Simulated assay, not measured.
Amino acid sequence: MTQKHIEVGIVVERRAVDSPWIDHAWTPLAVLPEPPPLPPWTELPGTPERRSIYLGAATLTLHSVDTAHFRENFQAGRAKLWVAIRPTGVEPEIEFVGVTADPFEGEVYAENVGDVVEALPMPQAVAEQVLAFFEANHVEREFIKRKRQEHDPRKGGGPRPEPGTRRGEGEA
Rank of each mutant, 00 (worst) to 15 (best):
Trp21Phe: 12
Ala172Asp: 03
Glu34Arg: 11
Phe96Pro: 09
Ala57Tyr: 03
Pro159Ser: 00
Val11Gly: 07
Arg78Asn: 12
Lys145Phe: 09
His138Ile: 12
Val65Ser: 13
Ile22Pro: 02
Val31Tyr: 02
Glu91Met: 15
Pro121Asp: 15
Val12Ser: 03
Pro123Tyr: 07
Pro92Lys: 02
Glu169Leu: 01
Ala57Leu: 03
Glu105Lys: 11
Ile53Tyr: 05
Ala110Cys: 05
Gly46Ile: 11
Glu150Val: 04
Leu131Pro: 01
Arg14Asn: 13
Val17Arg: 09
Ile85Gly: 03
Phe74Arg: 07
Glu111Arg: 14
Pro37Cys: 04
Tyr54Gln: 06
Phe96Asn: 10
Glu107Val: 11
Arg86Ile: 04
Pro121Cys: 10
Asp152Phe: 01
Pro20Phe: 08
Phe133Gln: 10
Val65Phe: 12
Trp21Cys: 05
Ile85Val: 15
His24Thr: 11
Phe74Cys: 06
Glu162Cys: 00
Gly156Tyr: 01
Arg86Phe: 08
Ala132Thr: 09
Thr88Pro: 11
Gly56Tyr: 04
Ser52Trp: 06
Glu140Ser: 14
Trp82Ala: 14
Pro159Tyr: 01
Pro153Val: 01
Gly98Leu: 04
Val11Ser: 08
Asp152Glu: 02
Asp115Ile: 06
Asn112Gly: 07
Phe104His: 15
Gly168Phe: 00
Pro45Phe: 08
Val97Ser: 14
Ile85Asp: 03
Ala136Asp: 14
Thr47His: 02
Ile6Arg: 06
Phe133Val: 10
Val65Gly: 12
Thr100His: 08
Thr59Asp: 10
Glu72Cys: 14
Pro103Cys: 15
Gln149Thr: 04
Glu13Tyr: 01
Val113Cys: 06
Thr59Gln: 09
His63Lys: 11
His138Asn: 14
His138Trp: 13
Trp41Val: 07
Thr47Val: 07
Gly9Ile: 05
Pro40Glu: 04
Asn137Val: 07
Glu118Thr: 07
Gly89Trp: 15
Val8Arg: 04
Leu44Glu: 10
Val126Phe: 03
Val113Tyr: 10
His63Asn: 11
Thr100Tyr: 09
Arg141Gln: 14
Leu32Thr: 10
Gly164Trp: 00
Ala58Pro: 04
Trp21Ile: 09
